[in-house]
Design a protein around this nucleic acid. Sequence first.
DNA 1: TTGACATGCAACCAAATGGTTGCATATTAG
DNA 2: CTAATATGCAACCATTTGGTTGCATGTCAA
Lengths: 104, 104
Amino acid sequence: MDAVFRALADPSRRRLLDSLHAKNGQTLAALCEQMDMTRQAVTKHLTILEGANLVATIRKGREKEHYLNPVPINDIAERWIGKYEKGRLKALGDLKKSLEGEEP
Amino acid sequence: MDAVFRALADPSRRRLLDSLHAKNGQTLAALCEQMDMTRQAVTKHLTILEGANLVATIRKGREKEHYLNPVPINDIAERWIGKYEKGRLKALGDLKKSLEGEEP
DNA sequence: TTGACATGCAACCAAATGGTTGCATATTAG
DNA sequence: CTAATATGCAACCATTTGGTTGCATGTCAA
């Protein structure tokens, strides 16, 4: 879970996920074309995404295909974000109530 | 949006959000008691959470109350995560299909 | 009014992060 | 076979990050 949050923290990595979401199974070279940084830097980002289980790769000859794995994102939505959505109205109400009681 | 993702990347900050979710409107000192680091470090984390609009604060005399703002989390769920949930089955299917075609 | 308490601010530090360059290896096309 | 292509690995670097210590300021209570 922590690895997923940390992986999502970088805009370049979110962009890679977006790219794979638009066109799944892209090769490293294909992803690099869109990324305004060296291939090696992209590799590092992809390694982090793999570590968070957000991307799976398959070697095909001398190429490497990258596939999006949306499951960890879904997990975060269910196990973490869901909790906050439930208390949403309550939280805003708490703040409002405290503001009313300001300068007592 | 980027600020929210980066704010959520640190486990201490997620813990602070959890604490405020459990008990809203806590003071800085109260939050520090649970955090195994100096008050100043906690302040830094809270500043980052405020910068991401995840926490709102009100000064009450010499104390400062901290309130959770769940709206940015909700925004991420709707505008970012939602996109991935839709393509979920498709993405897994892509990967499976590519695996079947391995070593061609 | 004075002392205790809650918070603010700033300098400093080690480690992590995001990027680079340079070179090595494996595969495919001609 | 050989040359071009696709990726891997490692050392290095600047900046950011997460934390500390030390001191300053503002507010409440006795």
